[in-house]
């Protein structure tokens, strides 16, 4: 069965959706688009799809990933033009890739996720440097029915943290090969605060949550955008 990777961006009001709400919204989008989705077998057939790493409520993104299987081979262009018009306002499909049969499935390999964060206040360089200089930073993760409460070292999952001068955000984005987005950049201009470039590692063994970083740095994140997502090598 042919597999495809879909890359969406989410802007404006849909940035306030939770991961679960996004999954439901995109599943319904695919049903509306009438692409020949493959369904799971059995008692309650579901479309075969998997999603990239969840994003915090309130964050916009240029790289929301979704993998689907179809019953029939279509070109990426055909898929693009079937899905894009049925997306809710605020979502756009930016890319559709055909995946080779032996390409590993989404979630089976580590990812590097890049964010721009807008943080309340100034003078964060010290706390960032002190965080980065330590090999360990333990956070307490709450347990639930299945898991016990435990201490978890988040430091290995923080790959990069850097304060970006507000005037140089566009230049910085160019150096990492990302073009600016005219709408999303406006929040930088309209809001006070410090801009941080943050790169996290997302693996099957674990990852760092944005709220954990917020606590570790003792800051308040006002806004955020996921700007890039690549395979970690």
């Amino acid at each position: 069965m042919p597999r495809y990777l879909l890359i969406f961006n989410r802007k404006r009001s849909v940035r306030f959706l939770s991961h679960l709400e996004e999954v439901r919204a995109l599943e319904r989008t695919l049903r509306r688009s009438k692409i020949p989705l493959s369904y799971s077998q059995g008692f309650s057939p579901r479309p075969i799809m998997s999603f990239g790493p969840p994003i915090p409520v309130g964050f916009s993104s240029r790289v929301q990933l979704m993998e689907i299987k179809l019953d029939k081979q279509l070109t990426p262009e055909e898929i693009f033009f079937m899905i894009n018009p049925t997306l809710p306002y605020g979502y756009n499909l930016s890319e559709v890739k055909f995946l080779n049969e032996n390409y590993p499935s989404l979630g089976s390999f580590p990812l590097e996720i890049s964010y721009l964060l807008l943080i309340e206040g100034n003078g964060l360089k010290l706390s960032i440097n002190s965080f980065l200089s330590q090999p360990y930073y333990q956070v307490l993760r709450e347990g639930n029915r299945k898991k016990k409460e435990k201490l978890f070292n988040i430091r290995p999952f923080v790959l990069h943290l850097e304060v970006i001068n507000r005037a140089e955000v566009n230049d910085f984005l160019k150096t990492i090969n990302i073009s600016k987005d005219p709408y999303e950049i406006t929040w930088l201009m309209h809001n006070q605060g410090t801009v941080i470039f943050f790169q996290s590692l997302y693996t099957t063994e674990g990852s760092v949550k944005i709220t954990e970083l917020e606590k570790a740095l003792n800051v308040k994140i006002i806004d955020g955008e996921r700007i890039n997502l690549t395979r970690h090598r």
């Binding site: 009001s13 849909v14 709400e21 919204a25 319904r28 809710p88």
Partner: peptide
């Protein structure tokens, strides 16, 4: 927040 955003399909 999704109670108040509107913009539903």
């Amino acid at each position: 927040p999704s109670r108040y955003t509107g913009g539903e399909f």
